[in-house]
Nucleic acid binder design. Structure first.
Length: 360
DNA sequence: CATTCGTGGTA
DNA sequence: TTACCAAGAAT
């Protein structure tokens, strides 16, 4: 790793911060520096694109304008606020942490690294982001953008896929950060990564700090950062069924409170590969006989580490209340109730297939 | 440290 | 179509 010459650090800070002040995007979480608003934005932005987050963030702030509003919300409401964003443990952890701030910190987001890092869902990046953006403290906020940008500027070859590498970049930021403009400096590194110093084909000729960049000087932009490849994911075949009765009620069940898609609702489903096996399993486990059962579609759900290949069925029964399930909460809902439950995208597609099927 | 945790966009 | 990616944290 090369270091910037000490007499150039000051110029680097000035070039970077001035560029950010001039060129930053207008984003809803930049309206003010309310620590709660900054906090929510940082949680939503974890592994999630800015364009995706914007509408979720604006609705979230309408539903829960203050820490008190969110602390008082119930689980179904917070999951509904997050429906479609992914990584649902984020909103459960945020809810737990916000309640903790209300009860233990008088509703004021703590402003020390030790205290803020104790909050659920607040890791090294988010702690640094809130402390530097909302409170002006000179703490590093190292995300994927920052590692990419600084790997190029400082010619750092450490593998950014390795957890230990983050510490290298945190130390670099501690040496570089502008103590008088911590918010702008940290956001500028990320904004530069998003707008100029992109993963492929960076716009170096538009870069405000290319004079300070080792990779630009040596033509190494495409070689950095170093990042090892991820392994490919496995596939699981599922059969899911929309059980509906003459009154229009459907059966949904709540997923466990931890693990994949925790706490979301879904149509009953099993890891079986045929209509007959689905009937057998549901007769055994749910004490319901599905006689009028037919396929309505195939849905693929791609996760980070897993793929579901779902065969969707519709089953017409006399009374959905025949369905029992010992391990999970269940609900019998009509179309007008359906919107109050948060479902994963694949099960929303199953519902769409059911609706389309009914119109034919 | 490696794996688990979503979703939609893009080359 | 495949692979990678996008303001990471918990386990």
């Amino acid at each position: 790793m090369k270091k910037l010459a000490s007499n150039n650090i000051e110029q680097f800070r000035e070039d970077l911060v001035n560029w950010f002040i001039e060129e930053q995007r207008e984003l809803p979480w930049r309206l003010n520096k309310d620590p709660y608003r900054v906090w929510v934005s940082e949680i939503m932005l974890q592994q999630t694109r800015v364009d995706t987050v914007i509408p979720y963030y604006e609705r979230f702030m309408e539903w829960f304008p203050t820490i008190e509003d969110f602390a008082e919300a119930d689980e179904e409401r917070i999951l509904k606020a997050w429906e479609g964003l992914g990584y649902y443990s984020r909103v459960r952890n945020l809810h737990s942490a916000v309640k903790e701030v209300k009860e233990s910190y008088g509703g004021v987001v703590p402003n020390t690294p030790e205290e803020i890092s104790r909050l659920k869902g607040v890791g090294p990046y988010t702690a640094g982001a809130i402390l530097s953006i909302a409170y002006g403290l000179p703490e590093p906020a190292v995300d994927g953008n920052v590692m990419r940008v600084l790997s190029r500027i400082l010619e750092i070859y450490d593998d950014i896929a390795k957890p230990a590498t983050r510490k290298i970049f945190e130390q670099a930021v501690r040496e570089l950060i502008d103590h008088d403009h911590t918010s702008e400096f940290n956001q500028a590194l990320m904004e530069l990564g998003a707008l100029i110093c992109t993963p492929t084909k960076p716009s170096c000729l538009l870069c405000p700090v290319r004079e300070h960049c080792q990779a630009f000087e040596k033509g190494l932009q495409q070689e950095l950062p170093v990042k090892t490849k991820a392994k490919k994911v496995k596939t699981v075949h599922l059969s899911a069924v929309v059980i509906v009765d003459p009154s229009g009620r459907m059966v949904i069940q709540k997923r466990p409170s931890s693990g994949l898609l925790a706490g979301l609702w879904e149509f009953p489903n099993y890891e079986v590969d045929s209509l007959e096996k689905l009937k057998q399993v549901m007769a055994r486990d749910n004490h319901i006989v599905l006689e009028d059962l037919r396929p309505i579609g195939k849905i693929s759900h791609v996760f980070s580490h897993l793929i579901w290949e779902i065969t969707a069925y519709e089953a017409k029964v006399e009374n959905v209340e025949q369905f029992t399930e010992t391990n999970r909460k269940i609900a019998f809902v009509r179309d007008e109730d359906f919107q109050h439950y948060a479902l994963p995208v694949s099960h929303q597609k199953i519902y769409e297939a059911h609706v389309i099927n009914g119109k034919q």
